[in-house]
Each structure stands twice: as structure tokens, then as C-alpha cells.
């Protein structure tokens, strides 16, 4: 059984609280980016591309045993680290849980600036896209 979303968020917040400066946070983020399981090359196509003005994010989603499984990648490593956090938080949850997730942890760990529209890194679109996938799977299951 996967832990509830807010519990995973809480763990991330705790982990990040160990760093007392931005350097540590970003180094950790960069490590996460490097360790993110890459998306299957066959999914790195334009139709799975969540395009930001500055960096690109590829996102693939599928349903497994009633939960959504995301894989993702980005061409920028810091974006990839953030993508990895989001994937870790939302992966293996039901569509409803994903749709209702507020994802306040990004603000709490002090990385909210990456969700600003001027960053144009594709992250905001990615979150929207993850929720849209969840919604689509939910609708599919109901029909």
C-alpha cells in the first residue's frame, strides 16, 4: 500500500529542512534529477512533450491496478529534479487522490519560484497535465 500523498509530501519537507542554505537544496535536487528513472525512449515524443519556453518535460502516464504510474524526463537537470519530486509524490495513487492533491510541499521547501509562470520551465503545465491524466483515467474507468 502506497503512503498517502500528504505523508510523502511531509517526508520531503522534512528531508529538505536538513539543508540550511540554497546550495544544499539545489545539490540534492540535482542528485534527484540525475537519479530519476528515465522515461522510455519511445515516449520521448512531441505529443508527450509538456513544452515550457526554457526547458522541456516529457510525461507519460498509465493505469496499473487502479493507480496511475508516471514516468518523466526533462532536458534541464534542475527541472528534472523537481519533476522527480512530483513523480515520487503522485505516483501509484488513485486518480481521485491525484486530482485533489494540493502539492503545498513545493512552497514549503522553498522552491515555489519554479512554479512561477516567468520561469517557463514546463513545470506548471506538467502538474496540470498530471491531473488531466488522472481525470482522463477516472472518466475512462467510469464509462
Amino acid at each position: 500500500m502506497t503512503k498517502p500523498i500528504n505523508e510523502i509530501e511531509g517526508e520531503i519537507v522534512e528531508e529538505f529542512s536538513l539543508f540550511d542554505d540554497w546550495m544544499g537544496k539545489y545539490e540534492y535536487l540535482i542528485e534527484l534529477g540525475k537519479s530519476l528513472p528515465l522515461i522510455d525512449e519511445q515516449y520521448k515524443t512531441d505529443d508527450l512533450l509538456v513544452k515550457g519556453c526554457q526547458s522541456k518535460v516529457w510525461l507519460h502516464a498509465e493505469m496499473k491496478d487502479g493507480t496511475v504510474v508516471f514516468t518523466a524526463d526533462s532536458d534541464a537537470i534542475i527541472t528534472k529534479g523537481l519533476v522527480s519530486l512530483l513523480v515520487n509524490v503522485l505516483n501509484n495513487h488513485s486518480p481521485d487522490e491525484i486530482i485533489n492533491a494540493e502539492l503545498g510541499f513545493i512552497d514549503e521547501i522553498g522552491l515555489k519560484e519554479h512554479l512561477s509562470p516567468t520561469r517557463s520551465n514546463g513545470l506548471v503545465s506538467m502538474i496540470k497535465q498530471m491531473k488531466l491524466y488522472a481525470l482522463a483515467f477516472k472518466t475512462q474507468a467510469q464509462s
Binding site: 540554497w22 539545489y26 519554479h114
Partner: peptide, 22 residues
């Protein structure tokens, strides 16, 4: 071979404003 976005983010943390992107 680093992505300009990554460099831009780190530079910003250091108070350095450059433009990255296209």
C-alpha cells in the same frame, strides 16, 4: 553541455541576472 536553464537558476541564486532560453 549544460542546459542554459540550469545555469540561469544557479546564477539567479547568486544574485546574477542573465537571460536564458531562446
Amino acid at each position: 553541455g549544460l542546459h542554459p536553464y540550469d545555469i540561469g537558476v544557479i546564477l539567479d541564486k547568486l544574485g546574477i541576472a542573465v537571460r536564458t532560453g531562446h
